[in-house]
């Protein structure tokens, strides 16, 4: 396989992209999970699906839009979706979770319309839904590198604000840090990471890569920095194991990565039980 990676550019792209999203998805995921926003990631990924379907449709239908990479339209939809969620959360102050089914079903609804317009499924769409080892282009890779730079730099620079916002939102507001702006930046980052990760794990399984490694990490970490470190470690293991098995068994990597994450989670839970019993 290592020879194959040396030979084929598409494999290099897939593995580099996998390594990158194995870092940024669990990194943001740690904040998402502790803030109990896991479902927001899910809702946004479905909006991203609508964006991708729209991009595929427009690039097929209109020759002057043939250059359009569906990743861009997915990203744009995802960011717009995140703005809508925030808006809905303030409209329905006492039913904040209501924003999630609205956005989630809205995303699928719009997505399905574009898919039907484009005359149903094709392999392209399949790879966006469940990930692909062969579909990542060099252009995708560069875009994903850029996104990950933005994400890592922002989390580094705003770490203590993000931590305080996650740990104690009320205290964050009372102490006078710009909680609203920080939260807004955070949601945009989530939208970007979803767009970056979908090439490998697929739109429908992005949120798994953001939450499952964190769920495992929380079982054994002391403190939040350790939670992030373990999450990234587990994320990397899951992506690598998932990509290798997807390559050899000719499967969609979204499935193998998620199954690998679940295995890690089960192992951690079992190990924890075992050490406690012993």
């Amino acid at each position: 396989m290592i020879e194959a990676i040396g030979q084929y550019e598409f494999l290099q792209n897939a593995f580099l992209t996998g390594m990158i999203i194995g870092v940024i998805a669990p990194l943001l995921g740690a904040f998402i999970v502790v803030r109990r926003l896991s479902l927001i990631a899910d809702a946004l990924s479905h909006v991203t699906l609508a964006g991708i379907a729209a991009g595929l449709y427009f690039s097929q239908t209109f020759t002057f839009l043939a250059w359009l990479n569906p990743m861009y339209s997915g990203m744009v939809f995802s960011i717009i979706g995140s703005l809508f969620i925030e808006r809905l959360r303030t409209v329905y102050k006492h039913y904040q979770e209501l924003a999630i089914p609205i956005i989630l079903s809205g995303g699928i609804g719009v997505g399905v319309i574009f898919i039907s317009l484009a005359d149903g499924f094709n392999t392209d769409l399949f790879s966006y839904l469940f990930g692909s080892v062969s579909a990542v282009s060099r252009e995708d890779l560069w875009l994903i590198c850029l996104i990950s730079l933005i994400v890592i730099a922002t989390v580094y620079l705003l770490y203590k604000e993000l931590f305080l916002l996650s740990f104690d939102e009320e205290h964050a507001k009372a102490s006078g840090i710009p909680a609203k702006s920080i939260h807004f930046i955070f949601i945009i980052l989530v939208a970007l990471v979803i767009a970056a990760s979908m090439r490998i794990v697929g739109v429908l399984l992005v949120s798994a890569l953001m939450t499952l490694p964190v769920a495992a990490a929380m079982r054994m970490a002391k403190g939040f920095k350790q939670t992030i470190a373990y999450s990234v470690l587990f994320g990397e293991i899951a992506v690598l194991a998932g990509l290798v098995s997807a390559f050899y068994l000719d499967l969609a990597p979204g499935g193998t990565i998620v199954v690998a994450s679940i295995l890690i989670l089960l192992l951690v839970i079992a190990a924890k039980k075992f050490t406690k019993a012993g």
């Binding site: 502790v34 109990r36 931590f163 403190g223």
Partner: peptide, 17 residues
């Protein structure tokens, strides 16, 4: 009021915040 007891933060991290 506002704090989630399952939060994986150490005493040091909480005080630092």
């Amino acid at each position: 009021n506002s704090f989630n007891t399952g939060f994986p933060a150490t005493v040091y991290e909480v005080v630092a915040s």
